[in-house]
Design a protein around this nucleic acid. Structure first.
Lengths: 196, 196
DNA sequence: AATTAAACTGACTGAGTGCTCAGTTTGTTT
DNA sequence: AAACAAACTGAGCACTCAGTCAGTTTAATT
């Protein structure tokens, strides 16, 4: 691994775990064994380092979703919704270290003043919500999902799933035992009939 | 208003808006016109100031819910769920300045090492989730809500509603237009029959 | 072996931090 | 008016921070 990659990896873990403002360059330097100056040689500023990490995360998430839904086939739109929820939870658990970057305020505050950051966040979230929306639309065609506003319902679904991930991040409640209830609740709220 | 109240109010707004670590004592001093020393005269530390604010917020939220649900009467448990969601959204919009305190990582990170903070957060969240659970239990008695695990479904409901509030906080999507869909989705996922 | 450019270093800077404390002001009691 | 305590002040302290830069090492080319 190159020095640049070492810095990216360590910084990603620290920013995700503690947050941007709570992580110092000197800490990244200590952990990696790379001099502070080297960090600024590879990235023009701490903010630039953050954006490089966010860019990598974006690629991982977008590629991950694209690959998963290119291979997978579902019996119905409703099953695809379940697949999307399950994959999101899997991703959040698998890439916990990098995913939690999105559960701090910093990226959103930065997005308000930095168009590059705004663009990256929008790409990530739109990709996820789009998948939910596609699944709903598909379900409405095959009859597994009833008359709902697909985009709005996709947003509500996403907010539900992300909320549960946040429970774990914030150490408030353990969402592990909520998976089955979550799936059946989503099926009920979308379903065109009594199927669960 | 006493100096102490002025400090609490200004700090609350700044902590909610920018976050704890991103707000300096000198900034609170500047905005209020109160000397920095005065802040430490009234609160033993910056963390102590934060806990005082969180305590006030807890009281507001707990009292708010208690009062609302003491006065209000509902035709069914399902209607009470709708009432709880509506009131939570109302509260989040009304006391935006203070509510957003809970949408930063700091309180949860502090809770991991500070039992007082942990206690305050648990009181707040349990109070809200309890209301949802009560409503579900009531609905199961009167037949408006089907066979679901009341606690788990209460957590899912809360995560949904709070997720939408976060959308607005993070400036990602405007949840304003999602209210009607949210309510009807909740009704569907809880309902024992086809009522919406 | 000599040259050159890219990669890397870490001591340093100046701005900013939470907090302290010796001293001043204010308001109440005697 | 004298005495006292509570409220308040702001300069100063020890410390941390992101970022700089003069200098060194490494690796490839001639």
């Amino acid at each position: 691994m190159t020095r640049k990659e070492v810095i990216l990896q360590a910084a990603s873990r620290l920013f995700s775990d503690k947050g941007f403002n709570e992580t110092s360059i000197s800490e990244i330097s200590e952990i990696t064994g790379v001099a502070e100056g080297t960090i600024f040689y590879h990235f023009k500023s701490k903010e630039g380092l953050f954006l490089a990490i966010l860019e990598g995360l974006k690629d991982e998430i977008v590629c991950g979703f694209d690959q998963y839904f290119k291979e997978k086939r579902f019996d119905s739109g409703l099953d695809m919704v379940e697949g999307a929820i399950t994959y999101y939870l899997y991703l959040a658990g698998m890439k916990e270290d990098r995913f939690h970057l999105l559960h701090h305020r910093y990226p959103y505050d930065l997005a308000a003043v930095n168009p590059v950051c705004r663009e990256l966040l929008e790409t990530i979230y739109n990709r996820i919500v789009d998948i939910f929306e596609q699944a709903i639309r598909l379900g409405q065609k095959d009859g597994s999902i009833g008359e709902v506003t697909s985009r709005k319902m996709a947003l509500i679904l996403f907010s539900m799933v992300d909320g549960l991930v946040r429970f774990k991040t914030y150490n408030l409640y353990d969402p592990g035992g909520l998976y089955n209830e979550l799936i059946s609740a989503c099926r009920k709220m979308l379903s065109s009939n009594g199927n669960t």
